[in-house]
Every structure is written in C-alpha cells, then in structure tokens.
C-alpha cells in the first residue's frame, strides 16, 4: 500500500478502523479533536458508530458498556479529559474489560495549556484511577508508529482483558507525516464468549455471563487483585518494547527519552557525534512495562558516567530510570513543560 500524508490524529482514527474497531465514543478536546472530526465522517462510511458523549465521564462508561458486550471499542482524549475518564477505566480494569484509550497530552496541571506536553507520565503509568491496577502504556514517536501501536493495541487489550493506553504528546496528534497502514497488523477480535455479555442468542449458551468490578467478599476481591497482578507481571515479561540509538558507541552519557522528545534528542545526538561527543539513547516504546533491564544494562558499562532523563515534564520518568539503574550511575533531568518543545540546541547545551 502506498504512503499517504496524514495528521497524527486522523491517522490514529483510520488505524482503529483498519484494526476492525467500529465503535468510537468521545468528547472533543484540543489537541485531539481531529480524531472525532475525522471519525464523524469516516465511521458511517464503514458501518461503524461514533457517538459523542455528554462528558468524558459518560464516554468512559459507554466504552465500558461496549467492551463488556464484547465489542472492539476505543476513545481519544487529552489530559483533563483522561482525568475525567479515570473512574470508568478503573472499573474496566477491575472487571477485566479490553479497550484502547488514546491520550494526546497537553500541559497541566488543571486546564494547563493546549500545547504539547508529556506531563501525564505518572497518571498513565502509576495512578490513573483508584485501586490496584495498571494499563499497558505505549508511547509513539512518529505518526507511523502511532498507527502501528494503535493496530497492536486492540489485540493486546484483548490478550490481557485490560485497557491499553496510547500516550502521545500534542505534536504526535498535530503533526503530518507519511503513513502506511500495514495489512499484516490487521487482527480479528478474540472470541470472548466465555466472559462477555454479548447475548445468549448470539453466544448459543445457557449460562449467563457477568461483568463486574464489585467483590464484597474479601477473599474474592483479593483473588481478583492477585489475578490482575499476575497479568501485569506477564506484561513485564512479554510486552517490553524499546529502541536503542547510538548505543554501540563508547557513550559517556545515556539519554532516556520517549515520544517526540526522543526525536529531538536523536538530532541532538547526531550533532554532538559530529563534534566528537558520543551519547547513547534508550527510547522506551512501552512506558508500562518499562524497559528496566535494558536501561540498567546500557547504564552499567564503564564508559557511561551519567544517565539523563529528557522529557517534557518536570522529571516524572526519572523515578523509573533510577529504579532501573539501581544507583549504579547518577541520573539527571532536563525538560520543559510550558508547551514549547525543547530544541536540539537546548538538549546539547
């Protein structure tokens, strides 16, 4: 298939359709409103549904309902909207419902601003909602990668029966780049007759399925949490994704950076290399699970003296890096989060 020039937000919408996801519920918010605009036109063409909720809270329960009924479903929002959805996402994790949530981040806290940011790292990887749960979080660095991660997100959500988040900064949504929609990433939804409330007639079963996150019996709740924990442990074993850049050099500094910020770092690394300074980079493509072992291995070489966390937030990722490096090397931070994306020149400095 030939390449098309598309805005990240539109490409994300198209990728969902190409993944066989025909259910999209959302509420508009900058900088991701083009997804809704695009799918409002596109979903009816392919026999899908786009329904705008009255709020993000309502949207999260539309998603819950569709997922509980066994449908492929996704939504997109931006930081404050994701906060509103967090209640429904927690319920879905507890009730083991698969869905894809896209957060095209803007600056915060509060209403913050509408420019690119990576300030929802903690929210996405650690504390999205109440209760003991995690999301599998993927962070694209280009429009093409956003498409591929979208197409992988649905089968991953179904494999784990857990929500998956695509965490992009505002630029990933707003930027136009050439994209291809690889046929090889098309998947069919898993058969979920065993648990989904898809209707006794379509399922041809006599037994009722029940989707719930309420476990009043302490032992039952404990068991449910142990089951969830085992899924998160499995994600850590099987789903870590990362990309290494210039790590075959004798780098003195190891950068850890993700999303658009990592591309700025790549340009900075190239320009420093031209000046005879070697810098390596590990780019986490999954933020949970975090590439702990890979970062530790890359930091634990004699020529590496310092690890730098470079992000468009006030150092949220640094804790995961320190945990990975285990005190073997100092970890420093550089970042900005007013909405300007730091330039390669600033990273070099």
């Amino acid at each position: 298939m030939s390449k098309v020039l598309m805005k990240g937000n539109e490409a994300i919408g198209e990728a969902a359709i190409r993944s066989g996801c025909l259910n999209y519920f959302a509420y508009p918010i900058t900088p991701q409103s083009e997804v809704a605009e695009y799918l409002a036109r596109r979903m009816p063409e392919v026999g899908g549904v786009f329904l705008q909720g009255e709020s993000e809270v309502a949207v999260s329960y539309m998603i819950f309902g569709a997922a509980a009924a066994g449908a492929r479903v996704f939504t997109t929002s931006s930081s404050p909207g994701i906060s509103l959805m967090s209640e429904g996402i927690s319920y879905m994790a507890g009730a083991q419902c698969p869905a894809v949530f896209v957060n095209i981040m803007r600056g915060g806290p509060g209403l913050g601003g509408i420019l690119p940011s990576q300030a929802d790292y903690f929210q996405a990887t650690k504390s999205l909602g109440h209760g003991d749960f995690r999301l599998l979080v993927m962070a694209p660095a280009s429009v093409q990668e956003a498409v591929e991660m979208m197409m992988d997100a649905f089968p991953l959500a179904e494999k784990y029966r857990n929500p998956v988040m695509i965490l992009g900064d505002g630029l990933i949504g707003q930027m136009m780049e050439p994209v291809e929609f690889p046929d090889s990433k098309k998947t069919e939804p898993l058969n979920n007759d065993a648990w989904a409330t898809s209707g006794l007639d379509t399922r041809k079963s006599d037994t009722r399925n029940l989707v719930k996150s309420l476990f009043l019996d302490p032992e039952a709740l404990n068991n449910n949490n142990l089951l969830l924990k085992s899924k998160y442990e499995q994600m850590k074993r099987e789903e870590v994704r990362f990309e290494a850049y210039n790590t075959d050099s004798a780098y003195n500094v190891l950068i850890v950076s993700y999303g658009t910020m990592s591309r700025v770092c790549r340009t900075a690394i190239d320009s420093m290399k031209a000046d005879g300074i070697e810098v390596g980079m590990i780019r986490p493509q999954t933020l949970f699970p975090f590439p702990e072992d890979q970062i530790r291995a890359a930091a634990d070489v004699t020529h590496c003296s310092v690890v730098a966390s470079i992000e468009m937030s006030m150092g949220q990722m640094i804790e995961d890096i320190e945990r990975s490096v285990q005190g073997k090397k100092p970890v420093k931070w550089f970042g900005k989060c007013g909405g300007d994306v730091p330039t390669p020149e600033e990273v070099v400095a």
Partner: peptide, 19 residues
C-alpha cells in the same frame, strides 16, 4: 510536504496550533 513525499523524501509538517 505532499509533493516531497511523492518524490520519495521523508517529510514532516508541524503546525503552530494554539487558540
């Protein structure tokens, strides 16, 4: 950007967006 893509180049288009 589209013309350059058709000529086989890598391209990116980044808008200023704000209010």
């Amino acid at each position: 950007a589209h013309a350059a893509m058709e000529e086989g180049f890598e391209v990116s288009w980044v808008p200023s967006y704000g209010p």
